[in-house]
Structures are given as structure tokens and as C-alpha cells.
Design a protein around this nucleic acid. Structure first.
Length: 573
RNA sequence: CGGGGUGUAGCGCAGAUGGUAGCGCGUGCGGUUCGGGACCGCAAGGUCAUGGGUUCGAAUCCCAUCACCCCGACCA
């Protein structure tokens, strides 16, 4: 490929819209352009990378015996009604009507379609297990698209679905996917951790996420450096560090306009650890629940949701709280409540610790209350684990870190097959619902994560397996025939060896060529210029470690092939 | 949806107190340069997000709308 003929609109300044590193780099490097919020065009460089990623994904999926299919993105709403997910998905699903006013949606995922196919075709246990996958554009009307390509409304995903007759078959498919995902990420040059996760709106019995450590990530993972326990904060367990509380008289205290934990803590001179937050949540849009969490802790909504068996919870608005409890937010507590609602206390709060919390009276808090003296409270782990908490497995300190979620695998069970009538006859002629699994991996996120992970001042250094080109040849002055001929000769030799490369044949200054090549992240560069050529040499530049090697021009091709080989070897699982 | 911010040339920005739009980069042409985003000359490029209002006069003041970005609740 010749740079002069390629569409690579690099920029000197990144557009001010871009905030995080991969987003800036992709815009600057001419990889992507935004069409509107949450939708990007992939320009030639990005598309080349994405094609390489998808072919790695294909190879690994095929390797575990998965069969590639392709399902419609356009779905009739009925199948989503049958599983109840038309409601569960809420505004996240794009909905539209056809010319006959029939309700359709753009599928955010494909369990419903898979179960529909299975319901129509699978009859016997002899036809199971099945493992199907597709690489397809998904649509999700994200409440807030952000971070460039990391969180968008239209994105490429590899999603697979397994159909099993038995739990054992499901386990095998699930484990094979985990293995395939590890191989995929390794081949794409990404370091990752596998963590226990919440099944969220998918439902199901077990799930794990494949996370890349990155500050750009939107997820957080709690992990133990000692025993390797790792879990999404949504589900991570921990033990609170010891806290020696102070004794406290029981009394109502006047706390004018002191609402937040900080304000109350400061005003009453009580540390946040000895305050209790009373958070009112709306459960499935019908019931109010009060959640009690220690003042220095965050409520983990996902854990609470799980405990309640709810499908949706949200913080109540101030107006709702006042209507339901007769007290404004800020002075709420499990004390002299005007109206009884369900109370769930975090089990990390010591039952005999006296604490301060709202007195359910405007401008008043109650001091010296203890959970042990309140009737009808439920206890559950509903707090978020934090750095410094104790690991429940080995007793060492936990760490909490931001991550990018690249892949997620689920054991779904029979939720979808039951809803859509996907049954089979077992050995005994008994009809049973098919046991499903579902597995996703974000193609674009792999690229974004790699950009992010290997970024430096000059740009990025993509892994050779997914870089848009493996090698760039940079003749520094194309008006010098000797330089150009030498570069062209090496270019031809490498082409014959099936190296994926580009020659920067533009008639521009050397500096610009260097900047561009380093920006877009090509892992290997051959520089052909007067300086080295005077002694019959060319220079090989290794982008990742910024190392330069001079080699005789006749040996350039062989030397480069060797380096390329080594780079690929490093990425071999 | 709540909170914050920004919309002026392809990109990055400037345009006090209202007086008819500018800088840097980039782009085109000519020339000198050519191993780390060169220099000189010439030139093109703008419904100042949109709609309404105030005013003799609005990029600037007022109202509304829209878009995009950031922080929170959801996900590959």
C-alpha cells in the first residue's frame, strides 16, 4: 500500500471534543470520524485493524467448534415481549415501526432470535450441543455514549450462543469460550484479568468478564494481589477493616440544614464511619426500600438489586421521598418512621455500634442509635468493596482498579428457551428446555483498549497482530532516486514475503513522516535516508521501545522478517 | 434523566463595554529547502448552531430550541 494513495487524514491538533487517550489518538491518527453522538465511521486504518481483530476472533471461535451465522439486526418486537425484555431493556433498545405500523426493534443482543431458531428447529438431544456465533453490528441507545469508540450506540460485537441438553454440556461450552477469549486477547496483545461479574439484565446463573486494566475504563474491579481473587465491584465481596467506635449517648440533635454526610460529620464532630446513610430506592417502580450503609461507604445498587430479586432499582427523587415518608432527603433514618418501609442494612455495620443518622424530622438527627435495637431490619452485603478492605479468601488487602470490559460470558440457563418454547426431547423422550449460554466480545473495544494501553507522547504502538500495517517503509526524500529505489526494492521484497506494509511515498518532509508513522502506531519502520545510505545502510525502528538498528540495506528484508516473526511469537498463546 | 460546559474557516482558538469577523495550523499555486511537523510570496475558504426578540445597527444583549462534550444512574 502507498501512503500517497491512502485516505489517512491525520491531524496536528486533536479536536477539543476528545477527552480520553484512545479517542484523541483515533481522531488524530485518522482512524475514525464521528457522525453523531455514539456513532463513528471507521476510516481505512481503523477498518484494517478491525478486520485483523475479527479474523483472530473467527479463527479462535472456529477453533472451539463454533459455527458462524448471521442474524437480522432488525427484530419483531413480539419475541422481546415473550421474554419480558422489551420492558427490561427500556429506553436502551431502539424501536421503530415498519410501513404497516408493525413494531420492530434494532437488536441490542440476540438471545431471543437464537431461541426462536432453536424453538423451530431443534427437536432432539441428538442435535445438541450447538455453538453459534456471529460478528455483527449491535444497537443500543446508550444513555450516555462516551470515550470515543469505547461506549457507542452502534458497535461491532462478536456474540455467541450455546445450546445444551445438560449442565455438563453448558459447562464445556462455557469453559471453551473462556479459553477462546483468553487466546483472542493474548493474540491481540492485551493483558487482561478474568473477573466474577453480575449477570445484570441478561439473567442467568454465572458470568465472568474479561477486563483490560486501564484508567479509561468505566468498570471497576476489586482484586487481591495475594490470592488473585478478582471480581467486578458490582459483586465483589470484602470485609471492612477494623473500626474502633466511640461510645455515644442516645439523643436527638438539632442539625439545621445539615444534610450530607460531610456536613453532618463536621457539624456533630462524628467521623463518617460512625454515621449511617439512609438511601431510599425505588424498586421495580412500585416499592420503596431504605438501604442503610455506613457513612464512609457507597451503596452497591447491583448487590441490593440482587438481594431484593428486583429487575430494576433507582434512587428515589426528593419529591418521591417526601411524599412517601413525609420527610425530605437528608434527615432520613430507620428511626421513628412515619411510614414503615422495608429496610435493608449493610452487614458491614456493626450491630452494636452507636451511630448517628437522620431522625425523620426536618433539621434533626439522632445520635447513639444501634441496629440491634431496630425491629424488622434485613442484613445483606450491599456496600461497594474498596481499596484497603480485607480479602474474604486470604485476609490480605484488596485493591480496586478501573478496567475496560472487553468480553463477558454468561451461563444463561433456560430463561429464554422457556419463554420462546425452545425445547428438546431427551433420551427418555421427555421434553425439556434447552440450556443456553451467551458470550460477547467487543471488537472495537479491543482496538480502543490497545491504543490506550500502548499510548505514549508520540502516539501509540499497536501490537503487530492488530496494527493496520505491520511495517512502514519511510523513504525520507522521494526526490532522491537512490533513496526511492532502495525503499521500493525493500518494499517489493517484503510484499513478496506477504508482509502487510505501507510505503510512505509522500513528497513531504522527514519530520512529518516520522510523526505520522509514530502517531498511527505501526510497530516496525524502515527508514531509508541519505545519512545511513551513505554507508550502505538503512535503519529499522522498533516503535514500542523506540529502538533504532542500522543494518546493511541488503539485509534489511531478512532482519525485518526476523523481528516481525519475534513480535508475532510473543503474541502466540 | 439530573448537574456542568461548549457551539465563530477543515482543525485549534481570539473577538472588553453592540458598529458589519480575525490569528495559528492546514489547503491551492509559485519558489527556496529536505533525518524529526521548514521558510518566503500569492490565493481560496465564514448562513458567527438554529429560530425569534430588543436596537438605526447583534457573533456580542434577551428568550426559546437543537447539537456536541464532560460528571453521575446502564453495558461489549
Amino acid at each position: 500500500m502507498r501512503w500517497s494513495r491512502m485516505f489517512i487524514p491525520t491531524l496536528k491538533d486533536s479536536p477539543s471534543d476528545a477527552e480520553n487517550i484512545s479517542h484523541k489518538l483515533m481522531l488524530k491518527g485518522g482512524y475514525i470520524r464521528q457522525l453523531f453522538a455514539g456513532a463513528y465511521s471507521f476510516l481505512p486504518l481503523a477498518q484494517r485493524s478491525l478486520l485483523k481483530i475479527t479474523s483472530i476472533v473467527r479463527e479462535e471461535m472456529n477453533r472451539i467448534g463454533a459455527q458462524e451465522i448471521l442474524m437480522p439486526a432488525l427484530n419483531p418486537i413480539e419475541i422481546w415481549d415473550k421474554t419480558g425484555r422489551n420492558d427490561v431493556m427500556g429506553d436502551e433498545m431502539f424501536r421503530l415501526k415498519d410501513r404497516k405500523e408493525r413494531l420492530l426493534c434494532l437488536a441490542p443482543t440476540h438471545e431471543e432470535v437464537v431461541a426462536t431458531i432453536a424453538a423451530g428447529e431443534i427437536r432432539s438431544y441428538r442435535e445438541l450441543p450447538q455453538v453459534w456465533y456471529q460478528i455483527q453490528t449491535k444497537f443500543r441507545d446508550e444513555p450516555r455514549p462516551r470515550s470515543g469508540i469505547l461506549r457507542v450506540r452502534e458497535f461491532l460485537m462478536k456474540d455467541s450462543y450455546t445450546l445444551a441438553a445438560t449442565e455438563e454440556q453448558l459447562d464445556i461450552s462455557y469453559n471453551r469460550h473462556a479459553e477462546a477469549y483468553k487466546r483472542i486477547l493474548k493474540r491481540c496483545g492485551l493483558d487482561f484479568i478474568v473477573v466474577g461479574a453480575s449477570t445484570g439484565t441478561m439473567g442467568g446463573t454465572a458470568s465472568q468478564e474479561f477486563m483490560v486494566l486501564s484508567d479509561a475504563g468505566e468498570d471497576e474491579v476489586v482484586f487481591c494481589p495475594n490470592c488473585k481473587y478478582a471480581a467486578n465491584v458490582e459483586v465483589a465481596e470484602s470485609i471492612l477493616p477494623e473500626y474502633s467506635w466511640q461510645p455515644m449517648e442516645k439523643e436527638e440533635v438539632y442539625t439545621p440544614a445539615k444534610k450530607s454526610i460531610e456536613e453532618v460529620s463536621e457539624f456533630l464532630r462524628i467521623p463518617p464511619e460512625q454515621l449511617v446513610k439512609s438511601l431510599v430506592m425505588v424498586v421495580d417502580e412500585k416499592e420503596f426500600v431504605m438501604a442503610l450503609v455506613r457513612g464512609d461507604r457507597k451503596l452497591c445498587e447491583e448487590k441490593l438489586k440482587l438481594h431484593l430479586g428486583a429487575s430494576n432499582i433507582r434512587p428515589a427523587q426528593d419529591k418521591e421521598i417526601e411524599e412517601a415518608l413525609g420527610v425530605p432527603a437528608g434527615f432520613l433514618g430507620p428511626y421513628k418512621m412515619k411510614k414503615k418501609i422495608r429496610i435493608i442494612a449493610d452487614d458491614g455495620i456493626e450491630k452494636d455500634m452507636p451511630f448517628a443518622t437522620g431522625a425523620n424530622r426536618v433539621d434533626y438527627h439522632i445520635k447513639g442509635l444501634r441496629l440491634s435495637e431496630i425491629d424488622g431490619i434485613e442484613f445483606a452485603d450491599i456496600r461497594e468493596a474498596e481499596t484497603g478492605d480485607t480479602c474474604t479468601r486470604c485476609g490480605k488487602r484488596l485493591k480496586r482498579i478501573p478496567t475496560i470490559e472487553i468480553g463477558h460470558i454468561f451461563k444463561l440457563g433456560t430463561k429464554y428457551s422457556k419463554a420462546l418454547g425452545a425445547n428438546f426431547l431427551d433420551e427418555n423422550g421427555e421434553s425439556k428446555p434447552i440450556i443456553m449460554g451467551s458470550y460477547g466480545i467487543g471488537i472495537g473495544r479491543i482496538l480502543a483498549a490497545a491504543m490506550e494501553l500502548f499510548a505514549d507522547e508520540a502516539g501509540t504502538a499497536l501490537p503487530i497482530s492488530i496494527a493496520p500495517f505491520e511495517v512502514i517503509i519511510t523513504p525520507l526524500n522521494v526526490t532522491n532516486p537512490l533513496i526511492l529505489e532502495t525503499a521500493e526494492k525493500i518494499y517489493k521484497e517484503l510484499l513478496e514475503k506477504n508482509v502487510d506494509l505501507i510505503i510512505d511515498d509522500r513528497d513531504i518532509r522527514a519530520g512529518s513522516k516520522f510523526k505520522d508513522a509514530e502517531l498511527i502506531g505501526i510497530p516496525l519502520r524502515i527508514t531509508v535516508g541519505e545519512k545511513s545510505l551513505a554507508s550502505g545502510k538503512v535503519e529499522i525502528f522498533i516503535r514500542r521501545d523506540k529502538k533504532k538498528i542500522e543494518v546493511p540495506k541488503e539485509k534489511a528484508t531478512d532482519e525485518l522478517l526476523k523481528l516481525r516473526e519475534e513480535m508475532f511469537k510473543e503474541l502466540t498463546p
